[in-house]
Computed example of a mutant assay.
Amino acid sequence: MKTALIATSIAMAVCATTPALAWEQETHRQIVLDAVNYMKNNPSTTNYNKLVAGVTRAGFTVDQFATALGQGAYDVDDFADTYICGASTGDCQLAPVWGAGASIVKYTSYWHFQNHTSGADVHGNPFGGYNYAKLGMAGDIDNMAAGWLYGDYLDDGAGGLKGWFGDSSKYNSYGVTEAHYRFGGVSSASQYADFETMPFQPIDNLGQYWWQQFLAQPTAQSLGFTLHTTDLLQPHHTWATSAHNHSSWEQWVRDNYASQHLNDPALVSAALADFTPLAPAAVDIRPLLTQGGSYSYANGGIVLSSTDQGDRTRVAQMMIPHSIAMVVVVLNRAAERLAN
């Protein structure tokens, strides 16, 4: 059964049509590929041999598996799982018409933050996700979104919240997406009745949901989805803002990834020392993910205000190696699951 599941997800990833490019997605893919390559070159200090054994038993090469993982990490930005509906019209949409130029391609991206500028959220998470009312560094794009979406609500299915003139529910984003990322916390549809106060669940919960899916039925796809959590090493995602050079910084990282040697193995080895290894039977990876978030919040804030080449290079040479290292830690634990 496990072999079939891994095979199916690898086939889907290899044959998938690549969606419209966005640097975040390509960078996510490259981080995963570099993490697998690091393990390959350091088998004595990683669980690479167990990873090979599990993947080989499924009938695939490690390179094929890495490609599928990278595609999974890439695909999370394309999830069609979050609809926001107009306060007056009740019309529900996946994305704002103005979002393509503002780093808000789809509303699903609002689940990709862990706000370190504020404390615990209303759900009981130690760090909340994106919540405009709680942003410590709101900028022009955050303000524009809050103005455009003022009073708009999260789609919670037919018969739930509605606009003045009705409701055109397309997907129960509250009952499915938010519920997946809730983990026993306190939530109600009314908390998502107005965009400007919506307490989106944090990205570590997203990662934990897909990690649990992987543990239950191992697939390259679910593990790849888990690895999208390297967003936690992007400082804008822990300072919680869609503004302050968010998009231009991400584009810079993509454009300079190779030329600045951001995947330097020596830097990855050093970064691994900043993470607590997961136990061989670990079920909850959120403490590890939060370590990554705390690191980017403490060390990467300068890129919110500076576009200087030196500042960006210095921060990128910390954030990308730590992203790769965090993936290595997760894959070390995943290898234990694949070996059983």
Rank of each mutant, 00 (worst) to 15 (best):
A102N: 15
H261P: 01
T27M: 05
P19M: 05
W249S: 13
A266S: 13
G139A: 15
D231N: 07
A20P: 05
V327P: 04
E196D: 11
V283Y: 05
A179G: 00
A11V: 14
V328P: 04
P19S: 13
I285S: 12
G139C: 08
Q221N: 04
L215P: 07
Q260N: 10
G184K: 09
N115V: 04
A7K: 15
A138Q: 08
H236R: 02
S169Y: 07
A120T: 14
T226F: 07
A4C: 08
D204I: 00
S169V: 04
L21P: 05
A270F: 00
L262A: 11
G59I: 13
I141V: 15
T290W: 02
S296Q: 05
D194T: 08
F214W: 06
L21F: 14
I6V: 15
K162Y: 05
R333H: 09
S306Q: 08
S296E: 06
S9R: 07
L5Y: 13
Y107R: 05
V253I: 15
L233V: 12
R314I: 02
S118K: 12
I141F: 08
L161A: 13
D75H: 01
P96T: 07
A270P: 03
E26Y: 10
L51E: 03
T290P: 00
H228W: 01
F214K: 05
C92H: 07
C15I: 15
Y110M: 09
G292T: 01
T27Q: 12
D311Q: 09
R333E: 07
A240F: 04
A68S: 14
T17R: 12
Y48F: 15
D231M: 02
H180D: 13
L161G: 10
D284M: 04
M326S: 05
G151W: 10
Y174V: 05
W239T: 06
Q213W: 02
A20S: 15
L233W: 00
S259N: 15
A58Y: 11
D63Q: 14
P19W: 09
Y209T: 01
Y297E: 01
L135W: 12
A335Q: 03
L69T: 11
S187M: 08
T313L: 10
Q25F: 10
M137W: 12
T307E: 06
H116Q: 12
